[in-house]
Structures are given as C-alpha cells and as structure tokens.
Simulated assay, not measured.
Amino acid sequence: MTSPTPSTGPVAVVTGASSGIGAATARALAGAGYHVVLGARRVERLEQVAAECGGTAVALDVTDDASVAAFVAQVPRCDVLVNNAGGAKGTDAVADADLEDWRWMYETNVLGTVRVTKALLPALLASGDGQVITIGSTAAREAYQGGAGYNAAKFGVAALSRVLRLELLGQPVRVSEIDPGMVQTDFSLVRFKGDQEKADAVYRGVDALTADDVAETVRWVATRPSHVNIDQVLMMPRDQVSAKVVHRTEA
C-alpha cells in the first residue's frame, strides 16, 4: 500500500490501474480532487502509478473472491468505482473457440466486474452520491469476425451495467458505461499473447485514441452534477466508424 486511504474527502476506486486506461484514469481522477485507490495484479507497476497521483495501491485480482474481499476491506469509503479491469484473448471463431481463453475473458470482464461492484455497493450507497463507471468497448455494441469471445464477454458487461442502472433507480448511485473503440495501449499485445508485430499492426496508420482520451471522458462523467447520469458513451477515433471500418494512412 502506497499511502493510507483518507477517512474524509471523495474516494475513487479504479481496477486494472497498473497501466493503460486504468492508470490514466487514476491520474485524471486524482487531478479532479479524488483520493484514488488503485487495484491490479502487477503490484510494482501499480505502486509506481499510485506514487505519481498520490493514491493508494492495493493488490487486486478481480477473478479471485478472496482477493476482492481483501481489497475492499482496505477501502473504508467509495464515492466512484471505475470498473476497468478486463481484456481480450485471441480472435478464434466460434468453431475454433479456445474455451480457456473464453473462460478467462468471462471471468475477468463479467464476473470480475460483478465481484467488485457487488462488494463496493454498500459503500457507494452509504456515500449518498455514488457512481459506478464501467469501461466497456465497441465490442459490447457490435459483433464482428474475430471478436466472438470478446463480444460475448463485453455484451455481458453492457447488460450488467444497464440492469444495474435499473436496479438502482431511486437510490443515490449513478451508473455509466463508456465504450471506447481503438485505444493504443497494451490491449492488443495481451490479445495476441505477446506477439508485438500483430499488436502493432492493429494500430498501424491509424490515429487511435489514447488512454488519456478515455480517462478524460471518465473524469468528465464522474464530475457531472449529481442529478445528471451519463448512461452511455460511445467514443472512437475519427479514423474509425465501426469495429472493422477504419481509415489507415499509408506510411
């Protein structure tokens, strides 16, 4: 743990915060006045990000019940929860599905989001003005070839977010879903299991979104007046109009 979580002042929890969108979001929310509790498995990187933004680093594996319970025990207050932990593995067609990859995607994206949200809902309600912001994907809105397993997981995350919005109607908790398109992070490197050439090819010739672009959107959503709920945001780079329709500049 980098620094103690304050007992007063607004607190934001960000999962998957050791790099990419999660790390950028932690910095953006810290700049907006939140004390940020950062959770991820890569503790050394997590502590570096926490030190940069004055936050608290706590080890978190969203696929493990005990890890989530231990994490939440160190979060005495939660005003904003950013469910960012997730990812894709592979591009298999349904006929060739690697069930272990599919299981990892479902556990990380869907059940991981459920575990953390369920565990922190009491604190979010107790805050009197809580907010759940879930980072989804264009894959939650559009099925595409090569996306079967990830589509299935992210459609599930979108359904979870939208049902939670219904369930919390009348309660002091807002629920928002942010669905980015192409963001140049380590996402594709994970998807292609460390194949840097394949990962680089995804973004070649495209002026893609950055992690900071998405983080700024999270910050904006989180700082709207309490009576304003930004239900859904779909954001893509100018060079992208759908999952597979992308303009590439020739090198």
Rank of each mutant, 00 (worst) to 15 (best):
T2W: 08
S3M: 08
P6L: 12
A12F: 05
A12P: 04
T15P: 06
S18I: 08
G20N: 02
A24V: 07
A28R: 05
L29A: 00
L29Y: 01
A30P: 02
Y34R: 03
H35S: 05
V58M: 02
T63H: 11
C78A: 14
D79F: 10
A85H: 04
G86T: 01
G87Y: 00
K89V: 04
G90D: 00
G90F: 00
D92I: 08
E100L: 01
W102K: 00
E107Q: 15
T108Q: 00
N109Q: 09
K118H: 15
L121P: 02
L125D: 09
A126E: 11
S127H: 03
S127P: 04
G128Q: 00
Q131W: 06
A139S: 14
A148V: 15
A153R: 01
V157L: 12
A158L: 14
S161E: 02
L164P: 03
L166Q: 15
V173P: 03
V190I: 01
R191Y: 05
K193T: 11
D195Q: 01
E197C: 05
Y203A: 10
V206N: 12
E216G: 12
V218C: 06
V218G: 05
R219M: 00
S226I: 10
S226Y: 10
N229F: 01
D231K: 11
D231I: 07
L234W: 10
M235N: 04
P237N: 14
Q240E: 03
K244Y: 07
R248E: 13
R248I: 15
E250F: 13
